[in-house]
Structures are given as structure tokens and as C-alpha cells.
Amino acid sequence: MHGNRFRHNFLTALLLAPATAWLVVFLVLPFIAIAIFSVGERAPEGGYQAAFTFAQYANLPARATAFWNTMVLAPVGALACLLVAYPVAYYLALRAPARWRLILLALVVIPFWTSLLMRTYAWMYILGGRGIPALLAFVGIEDVRLINTPGAVLLGIVYGYLPLMILPIYVSLERLDRRLLEASADLGATPLSTFVGVTLKLSLPGVMTGFSLVMILLLGEYLIPTLLGGGKVFFIGNALVDLFLQSRNWPFGSAIAITLVAVSVVVLIAANRISTRVSGARRVDLI
């Protein structure tokens, strides 16, 4: 018996060993490393010098514009995604003909797994000088500037993250017990109050999962503001690329990264709280 037990545990440890090593070496240790860096100093030639100071955190306002842009455009972008995504998810889950549902769902999933760089590039192409502005000039509307504006960045955000918002909402709506909708209507509720009181409320975990995922990924977004904001709309991601790859101020960059992770954790906790309080369920797993 003892030998059997030992073999069982040994095999379990063997199965988990590579994944554990990977998670520790490439997730846990790197995170500890940037936490240590964030209380250090910049070496004169760039890079890191050991110290214990909160000067890097005190210096965060130096990148106030990046923080401001990100903190405004991330929630606004996530909200815009949500407003577009909800009706689509609703249609897919509750209204679409059964034989179309899987195909439409696949059409949502495909862009989700398709290069964000290439999809953002497509808009760069469309909004750029030879795209829509050239067409507008053709019909007499001159000098329209679309690319390199906050509006272009917002459009890119909605385009890039729409699939990620649709999926969790779809999952929560699809699980919804349809008898509840009938019961609500039978008891004399108007369609609107059924929607608000039953559908919306019960799909809130999906909404919150989608909103927090999109918002967290937007906090670290770099490609969309760079390609569609053209150096005019800076995000935290741009500040991090600058600090790590160009000006090589690693301690300051680490302090920004730690702040970003802290904000992400707050967003996740808040989203969980809201969906637990309103609908009793915690979150929706995507996979």
C-alpha cells in the first residue's frame, strides 16, 4: 500500500514538475524581480542599481499623460466594446437560428485568434491618407484627418477587443434558463422589465468578465495607440517600451509595471464584487 501511495505521489509530482518550473521561472521570479527593481535606482549608464527607495513611485506623475490617456481610454474603450458586443451576444445566444449559431460563433472566435497587429494595420490602411480621407476628397470633402487621433485609437480598441467581449457574454446568456424569461412574461412583466430584471441581471457575470478582461488588456495595450495614435496618443504601454527599450530606466519602468498590475488586480476584484452582489454568481470561464 505504502509503495503504491508513494508511486502515485511521485507520478503526480513528475507530471506537474515542468509546468511548475515554467510558472516559477518565467512568471513568479520575473514578477519578484520587477518588484525589487521598482524600489531601486537607475544606474548611470542605464539599467538597475541596488537601493531601497520609493523615489520611482514618487516620480509616477512624470508619466501623467500616459496614465491619463490609458485610464480614460481603457474604461471608455471597454464600455464602447460592451455596448456593441451585448446585442451581438444576445442575438447569438437567444435569437439566432440554431443552424446559424455555430457558424456565427466561429466568425466571432476567428478574429479573436487572428493577429492584432495585422488587424490594427488594416485600420491604419483604411484611415490613413490614401484610404477614407482620399475617398472623401474625391467627393469634395477635403483635409479630413482620421488617423493619429484619439477617435482612431478608440475605433481600433473596439475593433481589436470586440470578440473578447462578445464571448463571455454569449456564454452567460446561453446558459440562461429560458423558463425564467417565460415566467417573467407570464407574470405580466413588460419585455423591458424582463430584460432588465432577468436577462441583464443574470448575464452580468459574463459582462463583468468581458469588461474586466478587456480593460486589463487595454491597460497594457501598445500596438493600437502606436499605430493608430501615431505618437500623439500615448498609453502606459508606450511609456514602458520607452523606459525599457529606449531610455533604459528600468527601475522607473518597473514601478510603472507594478502600478499597472495593482490597478488590474483592483479592476478584477471590483468586477467580481459587482457580479457577486447583483447576480450571486462569480465569473464566467472562457474555456
Partner: peptide, 9 residues
């Protein structure tokens, strides 16, 4: 965790 943070850490 956003790719930026994974990348720099």
C-alpha cells in the same frame, strides 16, 4: 497579465 508586463518582467 498583459503581454507588456510579461515581456518586461
Amino acid at each position: 497579465v498583459p503581454g507588456v508586463v510579461i515581456g518586461i518582467s
